[in-house]
Every structure is written in C-alpha cells, then in structure tokens.
C-alpha cells in the first residue's frame, strides 16, 4: 500500500500533523475492525459548551456574591447538566465498534463512496454519531445491538489505489455541550479505475486469435473438435465407433462451435499521446467490449489478460489498468 495516495487534500502533510497522527496511533488500534476505548476517545467542550460555561461562571459569581442560594442552585443544575453531558458524549463512543470500511471501485473523477459500518456493544443505542472524512460528514444512529452504515463521498482524481485519510467519528449528544471524538484510518485503500477516454477511437477489429488459444467448447456446436474417452451419459450417436475399435476403448466425439474472434487490446498498439491517454482509451474499449458482450484480451506490457467477456474479466482488466505503472 506504499503506492497508495493520501486523500486528505495535501499530498505532503506537515511534520506536526504526522507526529500528531503517530501519537494517535500509539494510543490504540486505529484501523477497523476496532473497538473504541477510553485511550482513543477525546473530549472537549463545543463552542456552545464554552458559551454556557461562561454564562455559568457569570451566574456563579453573581449568586455567590449576593449569597443568592437559588441562583447558586440554578448554576449548579447547569453544572450538573454539563458534567453529565460530558459523560454521555463519552459513553456514546465508548465501546463503539468500527467494523469495516470499504468502497466499491470508481472511475477517476467520480466520488468513491467509503462505506463505514459501525456497531455498538453494551446493548445501548447510540444516537447522533457523526462520521467525517475531510469535509464530508454523515450522521448515523445505531440502534441497541444493531449495526449501521454510512457512506462518505470521497472525490478521486487519479487512477490507482487511493488511501483515504484520517476519518473522525464524533458525537455531541445529548445537548451539544461536549464533543467526544475518535480517529481511525480506513482499513484498505480504494481502487480507482482509470477515467475512460471520451470519444475513444473505434474498437480495433481484426486483432486476432492467437496461436494455441483454445476455443471454448460449445454444447450446441456441430464442428468436430476432438476425440475423448466416452463418459457415462454421452449419447450413443456421439460414439466414434471406428476410432474406438482402433484404441480398444470407447471414444466419443467432442463437438465445438467455432467462435467469433475475440478482440485483442494491446497497450502498445493503442493510440494516444501519453500513457494516461492510452490507458484511458483502453479503459473505454474494455467497457465497450464488455457492453457489446464480446470477448477480449488485454495486453499490458508483458502481461496478458483473457480472453474473456464476463464481469470478472472486466474487473480484472480494469484493476490491471488502474495499477499499471
């Protein structure tokens, strides 16, 4: 994952920030799956908390000065509310489990949706959790003993593996006086496929069938392909009697249908000014081929993928295109 880019805006983070992150990491596990414990939970008053604190101080001074006991009682009720808020904010995070993070691959330029799934423990509901990555924030509530998920949009710019930066989960429950928060890092990078070229050149027909490449057998084929040992269930009319006689064993004819030729997509033969452009064109071609349900091979330098035409092949090709250096 060394090649993974950071998604926190600036590619090079300042030294203090790195030290700070290292300090967080030393305090406890920071990659899902993890359970938040007191060492990982930070808590500070919100702006509103400071405001109410100042108000409380004014009330305290006034009431103390005039020995106004009901005024003091009011002040202390506010103080009690405050101290309990702190506790409640803390307990809303305490024991929270961040089960998993992950995101489906996207094309560069699209927003990846980082899925974060959270679960409580201790059988208490956890309302009003804010999960944030950079400036994107989602709010989620976890029912008692339940699991909730949030999706954080994450803009992507370049193909390859994108390592999302530090995520924050925080809560200001119950009345917004204190903010308890914790940090974690998504467990694995997000695959960003290359951005497909707009208006790519047409698919390179006549690429070809390479020597030694076997065609797929087709059940409804009618072109003789080879002989093989007779297997139970083979219809009798397939038995190659003469050949069987020669080999002293029962042989059956295997029939295959000649298949339409597959596309050969090769990076070396793709038009484009630079690598990124050619990869963009290749991506567009792969997508088109898949859409047209045609088989293709993809050749990137020494590596050849395929032939194939199914989803798995498409995913393999897109990943190879994303990772190609």
């Amino acid at each position: 994952m060394d090649s993974a880019r950071s998604a926190s805006g600036q590619p090079s983070q300042g030294l203090p920030r790195r030290w700070f992150n290292a300090w967080i990491v030393r305090r406890g596990p920071t990659r899902p799956p993890l359970t938040l414990r007191y060492r990982q939970i930070f808590i500070l008053p919100t702006r509103f908390g400071w405001l109410l604190g100042a108000l409380m101080f004014a009330m305290l001074m006034g009431s103390l000065n005039f020995n106004n006991n009901l005024g003091l009682l009011t002040t202390f009720i506010v103080a009690g509310l405050g101290s309990n808020s702190m506790l409640i904010a803390y307990r809303n995070l305490e024991g929270l489990r961040i089960l998993r993070t992950g995101a489906a691959p996207v094309f560069a330029g699209q927003s990846a949706l980082l899925l974060v799934s959270l679960a409580g423990n201790a059988g208490r509901p956890r309302p009003g959790l804010e999960v944030a990555l950079d400036d994107n924030e989602q709010i989620v509530s976890i029912p008692a003993n339940g699991v909730s998920e949030v999706q954080l949009p994450l803009p992507t710019h370049h193909r390859g593996w994108l390592q999302p930066g530090r995520c924050r989960v925080q809560t200001c429950q119950p009345v917004g006086l204190f903010r308890a928060w914790s940090w974690f890092w998504p467990e694995r990078p997000i695959l960003v496929w290359p951005r497909p070229a707009t208006n790519p050149p047409p698919l390179p027909e006549g690429g070809g069938r390479r020597e030694g490449q076997l065609d797929q057998p087709q059940a409804d084929g009618d072109e003789f392909y080879s002989l093989r040992k007779w297997r139970e269930g083979d219809p009798l009319h397939r038995v190659a009697w003469k050949a069987s006689q020669r080999h002293d064993t029962l042989l059956a004819r295997e029939l295959r249908r000649p298949r339409s030729r597959h596309l050969a997509l090769d990076l070396a033969q793709t038009p484009g000014q630079d690598l990124e452009q050619r990869i963009g064109v290749l991506t567009a071609w792969v997508l088109t081929a898949h859409q047209q349900q045609r088989a293709w091979t993809l050749r990137l330098g020494p590596e050849t993928l395929g032939p194939g035409r199914d989803d798995a092949h498409l995913q393999r090709c897109l990943r190879a295109l994303a990772e190609f250096q």
Partner: peptide, 13 residues
C-alpha cells in the same frame, strides 16, 4: 444412480 454430466446433456436425460 450415477450421472456423468456432459455439455450435450438435455433435461430429459
């Protein structure tokens, strides 16, 4: 019963 499945087998088989 043993059935050796092949690509030319039909449901009726």
């Amino acid at each position: 019963q043993r059935v050796q499945f092949t690509n030319d087998m039909l449901p009726a088989d």
